[in-house]
Design a binder for these strands. Structure first.
Length: 895
RNA sequence: GCCGUCUUAGCUCAGUGGUAGAGCACUCGCUUCACACGCGAUAGGCCACAAGUUCAAAUCUUGUAGACGGCACCA
């Protein structure tokens, strides 16, 4: 006899299996021995090397692992490819900080080469936190195919793509207003800039003197310091107030410069004073106005957002906000400050460091997005690809974003990353090439030096779907590309659909001609207990590792899978606790069977039962198959929560609460057939649960008698024994037995009614009583056949089944759809209480009946509703009438 | 400003054109030989509000209110 601990210990199971799974090669597609096996592939959204596992990862990894394990069990050649992202800015910042802390040095003190060497060292030392955590999660990724975005092959891919896009004119270098982060000292793409609303913002009204007159023109601004770079004041061409002033000149205060007043459609006469200061080098709109009026572009800030020398001697070196105060103070002194108004403003901030981003004019590299966008839009229009789950609202958000796409700033002023493969000669000519020697060749042997910038991290991750399979520009097709591209599904969060998903779709199409993936599963956000996104600053984060320690990996996983696809959810520990309890339930159900299975072993044949088998057996086999079919259907639709709910209720309600209880006597008596069957049912249930709860199911499966590689899917016959390579139960529609299901519900209804009588009449569970049942001949047969089970579960000692009830007055009564029930309770019954109990039941049934009566007396309903629906209601009406009649008579009998 | 999502039991959430569901909490029982991380039995909802479509609306449409998200703009 196998003895299990009384309660499931997740930690024990968690340490027993992962290493063997991994070292046995179970995760790699090569484990599949079937040369004709269909492929199934997922590439992981590569987490940052600086990252550690958060709840969003845990959610996405769970879904990817469920899909991967499920497909693997279905015999697919399955690959879930893991990897990490070099995370340009994040790693750079870590290394800068380390350098400052340990040696009090700045990057420039040690130089680029040494800095990069240290960044690699940092990555080697700290960069595998998350991959170790993924092992704890049970992620069945193929570690032999692990990729890093700065691997040699992936770096070659980056250069190949850059060179080719440049040669085709899809990448260009140009002077534009860009988002500048003064703290990170790099340009950012539009997507890396977030907004922050400041209620304490101010709108400053500054008076500019008109040259050669006493009059002034007032402009309103939220950034007074930029006036030092003003090149004009613009007014609306249709604004009569300023008509006379257009063409005149302004003596720009605090400077010795004169600037024109121009008329431009950009200006909205209704807003502010109707006059706008124009700073072409520090504002995107002003830049465009400047171009239309041939204005000079003068930067007045340095890369750390201090004012530069062009701002004037008084301001040079001063921080932008100090300069703002000083400008305002000086205007005030000059009597040129009209007023200051409170004005709520939204400021652009750096997504990572929250520093206020400064729009500045700068020369950067860009990807032209017009044709690139069409690659993705055409795919959606022509093939409806990718298919988003949930489709609403993701498909529309994605499409709309594409339609309004602007060019993508791809250069970054960092050292850690893929250095841009562009070289310059002394005259500023550009040579883009795979290597320096190629570039020199293009330059005719002249001295050249490489662009100092690196590429946006998302540029390399945009290639992830194919660069990870060995594409590097030279090798453009590899066995893995042939087999695994397009990948089947991408699982990711909403926040990176634009940053990553869309770019991967375009770049994969462009360079391989293939789709990156067929489907996209968009997960929701796991919010903190306060309903806000988890963040360090809010301190509302929940650490998945803590949950693993507290409730177990499996409980955490299946809880995460129980969240509706795409829905946001507030975290609550109780949800995980529910599934911790579920894990314990599974453990104990198995434990019970193992305690009584000396003569048993898993045997599929034990479930091939005929119509003559016991009702409970026919019923559970039916329920098992129905559940299997429904679970597979749910997974195919990416409705993980539906699958979880089906499994939870099948296992707990059907199997534990009813089947085990019904079979208990046979099992404990050592009935070999019963033990074999129940062990076989558990084995199949464990397989269905395995993708969600890999550790628990493997732990128990290994203990079940008769399990082994003979149960493996045909594609994995030579592999060492493991539940993860058994076949996922497909369910057999022919095994669904509607007769058994309806007969069983008649039995269950009956038992529940008797239990209700016991509970409401306050009869102690230890008291056994007699049950009288009146039913049709057919149902009499059903109840007779299950007499022993009814007696046991209703805690009765005698069952009298007949066509009519023949009982003493002192009886408690009830009705089901199939039976009238009476329990004689001489001396135990409280007549008034019993009458009240019956009245409540009658009231409920009457309420339902009057609703149905109403519907059936509505000729519109009878004429127009589907006839089946009408018949259904008529049947119900008859049943209700009869039940009400019986209960009413029961009350009368008590008077 | 534009686009979109959400509002269901005390809490956290499923669900659906045709009798409102789960888990937890609550109430009442239970040392029933797998499990108290358990077993049994109750109670608890005009499915945010209003109008419309329909034989039928919690579900579809429109509007209102509240919560939230994305994008754009912000002199």
């Amino acid at each position: 006899m196998i003895e299990l601990e009384k309660a499931y210990d997740p930690k024990e199971a968690e340490k027993n299996h992962y290493e063997r799974w991994e070292s046995s090669g179970f995760f790699a597609p090569e484990i599949n021995e079937d040369p004709h096996a269909k492929p199934f592939s997922i590439v992981i959204p590569p987490p940052n090397v600086t990252g550690s596992l958060h709840m969003g990862h845990a959610l996405q990894h769970t879904i990817m692992d469920v899909l991967t394990r499920w497909k693997r069990m279905q015999g697919y050649r399955t690959l879930w490819l893991p990897g990490t992202d070099h995370a340009g800015i994040s790693v750079q910042r870590k290394v800068v900080e380390q350098l400052r802390r340990d040696e009090n040095k700045k990057p420039l003190d040690i130089g680029r080469e040494e800095f990069i060497r240290r960044a690699w060292a940092w990555k080697e030392q700290y960069g595998n936190t998350i991959t170790e955590q993924m092992r704890r999660e049970g992620a069945s990724v193929d570690w032999s195919r692990h990729r890093f975005t700065m691997d040699e092959s992936l770096s070659t891919a980056v250069r190949s793509v850059f060179v080719r896009l440049y040669d085709e004119g899809w990448i260009y270098r140009g002077l534009r207003i860009v988002n500048w982060c003064p703290k990170d000292k790099t340009v950012l793409s539009d997507l890396e800039v977030k907004e922050e609303t400041r209620k304490d913002g101010k709108l400053y009204y500054l008076r500019y003197p008109v040259a050669g007159s006493d009059s002034t023109i007032t402009v309103a601004t939220t950034r007074p310091e930029t006036m030092l770079g003003d090149m004009a004041v613009a007014v609306s061409p249709s604004d009569k107030r300023y008509k006379e002033l257009v063409g005149k000149t302004i003596d720009l205060p605090l400077t010795s410069r004169q600037i024109p007043i121009v008329a431009d459609e950009y200006v909205d006469a209704e807003f502010g004073t109707g006059a706008v200061k124009i700073t072409p080098a520090h504002d995107p709109n002003d830049y465009l106005v400047g171009q239309r009026h041939n204005l000079e572009q003068q930067l007045v800030m340095n890369d750390d957002a201090t004012m530069n020398s062009a701002a004037g001697a008084e301001f040079g070196g001063m921080d932008r906000f100090a300069a703002r105060e000083k400008v305002v103070a000086m205007f005030d002194e000059l009597g040129l400050l009209e007023k200051i108004e409170d004005h709520e403003i939204t400021l652009p901030v750096c997504e990572r460091c929250k520093t206020i981003v400064e729009p500045i004019l700068s020369e950067q590299w860009f990807v032209k997005m017009d044709q690139m966008r069409d690659l993705a839009l055409d795919l959606m229009r022509e093939e409806g690809a990718p298919r988003f789950s949930p489709q609403i609202p993701n498909e529309k958000v994605y499409t709309t974003w594409l339609e309004n796409l602007k060019d993508w700033t791809i250069s970054r002023q960092l050292w850690w990353g893929h250095q841009i493969p562009a070289w310059y000669d002394d005259d500023g000519n550009v040579f883009v090439a795979m290597t320096e020697s190629e570039a020199r060749e293009k330059a005719g042997g002249k001295d050249i030096r490489q662009d100092q910038d690196v590429l946006d991290t998302w540029f390399s991750s945009g290639l992830w779907a194919f660069s990870t399979f060995g594409w590097d520009g030279e090798a453009t097709s590899t066995p893995d590309i042939e087999t695994f591209l397009p990948t089947d599904v991408l699982v990711t969060g909403r926040d990176i659909i634009f940053l990553w998903v869309s770019r991967m779709i375009m770049l994969t199409r462009k360079f391989t001609g293939k789709k990156a993936f067929n489907d996209v599963v968009v997960t929701g956000t796991v919010l903190g207990k306060d309903g806000k996104p988890m963040s360090k600053s809010r301190n509302n984060g929940v650490d998945p590792i803590e949950m693993f320690d507290k409730f177990g990996v499996d409980a955490t996983r299946i809880y995460l899978a129980s969240i509706a696809t795409g829905a946001d959810i507030k975290w609550n520990d109780i949800g995980v606790e529910t599934y911790r309890n579920f894990a314990n339930k599974i453990w104990n159900a198995t434990r019970f069977c193992l305690m009584n299975c000396e003569n048993a072993a898993v045997d599929r044949a034990s479930l091939l039962i005929g119509d003559d088998a016991a009702l409970a057996d026919r019923w559970i086999v039916s329920r098992l198959n129905k559940t299997a079919i429904d679970v597979s259907r749910a997974l195919e639709r990416y409705e993980f929560h539906t699958a979880v709910s089906l499994l939870y209720h099948f296992f707990w309600d059907d199997f534990c609460d009813w089947y085990i209880e019904l079979k208990k006597d046979e099992i404990t008596a050592g009935d070999a057939a019963a033990s074999t069957r129940i062990v076989t049912i558990i084995e199949i249930a464990l397989r269905m649960l395995h993708p969600f709860m890999p550790y628990l199911t493997e732990e128990l499966w290994q203990k079940l008698p008769g399990t082994g590689s003979t149960l493996h899917h045909a594609a994995y016959r030579s592999a060492g024994q493991t539940i993860m390579l058994t076949s996922f139960p497909p369910g057999d529609a022919a095994a669904i037995d509607e007769t058994a299901e309806s007969e069983m519900s008649a039995v269950i209804d009956l038992i529940k009614k008797v239990r209700n009588i016991r509970s409401e009449m306050n009869i102690s569970p230890s008291i056994k009583f007699t049950i009288h049942i009146a039913a049709t001949v057919d149902h009499q047969a059903v109840f007779n056949a299950n007499k022993a089970q009814i007696l046991k579960l209703a805690r009765a000692d005698k069952l009298i089944i007949a066509a009519d009830l023949d009982v003493p007055k002192a009886s408690a009564k009830a009705v089901t759809g199939e039976a009238s029930i009476a329990v004689p309770l001489e001396g135990l019954i409280d007549f008034e209480k019993e009458r009240e109990r019956l009245r409540i039941q009658i009231a409920k049934l009457t309420e339902e009946k009057s609703r149905i009566d109403g519907q059936l007396s509505n000729s519109n309903f009878v004429d127009r509703a589907p006839s089946e629906k009408v018949r259904e209601l008529r049947d119900r009406q008859v049943e209700l009438s009869s039940q009400i009649e019986t209960l009413t008579a029961n009350i009368a009998a008590l008077e």
